[in-house]
Amino acid sequence: MSDTENDTKADIKPKIGGGDGDNAAIQLKVVSAEGDEVTFKIKMNTTMGKMKKGYADRKGITNMGKFRFQFDGRPVQDAETPASLGMEDGDTIDVFDEQIGG
């Protein structure tokens, strides 16, 4: 991933957006299987990859390969955005651990 730490911080702001036209901020909840909730305020064109990094920062997760985002029963890709996924204010993203087995 070529995103830098600065990009991440610049795009994910915990403040209330003022509704800047087509790119207004929406609030999304990330909910784990254990029921933990983390709330994000992000722009409609912010990539899910950046939001995943923000989530990892807040949860202290160092390995990005260890968790997955899901929206409406579909795996969420890093390049997707709230706009491309048709997300609305208040929507929930489910987060799951990587599954492994041998």
Binding site: E98, I100, G101, G102
Partner: peptide, 9 residues
């Protein structure tokens, strides 16, 4: 190695 959900998916 053990495989993960991404490879099987």
């Amino acid at each position: 190695h053990w495989l993960n959900d991404q490879i099987i998916g």
